[in-house]
Design a protein around this nucleic acid. Structure first.
Lengths: 116, 116
DNA sequence: AATTTATATCACAGTGTAGTATTTATCAGG
DNA sequence: CCTGATAAATACTACACTGTGATATAAATT
C-alpha cells in the first residue's frame, strides 16, 4: 500500500502517542477498547505492531521485569519519523474530509438526509 | 472484519455524505483528492463502492444522461442505515482516540517527544 | 510446579490499489 | 441520418497489504 495506514493501524499509533513512554501491547489494547468501546483480540495488536515496526514506523525496546506478580517483560514502542509523518497525514486527511460534518455524522442514527 | 470500515472506505463514505445527492464515482474521487491531497486511481473508487454496496452500506441508482459532451451515465450513491452506523462508529472511534492530541499531531514533523 | 503477564505465530478473510478494458453518450463530417 | 472520433464514466482483474481470531509461547513471581 505504501505510505498510508489502515484504520486499525491509525488507532494503534494514536494509542501509542497517547500513552507516551508507557506504550506497550496490553496497555494499548486496553486504551483502544476503553476509548472506542470496540473489542480487540490480543493477536491483532501484535501482528499490527510487528508490521508497523517492519516498515520503520515505530521502534521497540524491552522493558525491565517489574515485580507485579511476574509475567513476561513488556515491549515498549516509540513512534519514529516515518510513522509520525504517516499518522499526521491520516489525521489530516480524515479531518479535512470530516470537517463541518460533525453534526451530520453524530445525527445519523437511521439513514442520511441531505438537507431538511 | 464484519462491521468496521477500512480507512479508504471511511473517506469514501465521508465524501458521499459531503456531496449529498450529487455523489457519484468521479466526483467523489475529485473530492477526496482535493481535500486530502492524495492521488487516487479511478479503479480504487469503484471497487470500494461495489464492496460497500455489497455489504448494504450504500445503494445506487443510475442517473439520466446529461447533454455534457456525452459519456456514460452517472451512478449516484446513497448512504444506507448500516453504512451510516458504521461511519458514525468509525468517526467516533477516531475522534475519541485523537481527542486532545490535535496539537501533538500537527506538530509531529520529525519524531515524537512525549513531554518537554 | 502453578500462576500470571505479556508477547508471538498462523492462516484466512477483507481492503487497497494500479492498470487495463468496456460501456454509453455526444459531436462532426459527409 | 449514419459513422467514426472523442469524451465521460464505470467495470474488471489480479496481487499486495491489513484485520482478526485462535492458538501457542515465553518469562517472571510465588
Amino acid at each position: 500500500m505504501g505510505k498510508s495506514l489502515g484504520e486499525f493501524e491509525q488507532l494503534i499509533l494514536l494509542a501509542l502517542v497517547r500513552l507516551g513512554k508507557d506504550a506497550y501491547g496490553v496497555k494499548m489494547r486496553k486504551e483502544i477498547e476503553a476509548r472506542t468501546g470496540r473489542e480487540i483480540s490480543a493477536g491483532a495488536i501484535y501482528t499490527a505492531l510487528e508490521r508497523l515496526e517492519g516498515r520503520g514506523f515505530i521502534s521497540s525496546r524491552l522493558g525491565e521485569p517489574t515485580p507485579e506478580r511476574g509475567g513476561r517483560r513488556k515491549k515498549y514502542y516509540q513512534l519514529e519519523t516515518d510513522g509520525a509523518t504517516a499518522l499526521r497525514r491520516s489525521y489530516n486527511a480524515f479531518s479535512q474530509m470530516a470537517k463541518g460534518l460533525g453534526t451530520r455524522l453524530s445525527a445519523l442514527p437511521a439513514d442520511a438526509e441531505p438537507k431538511p
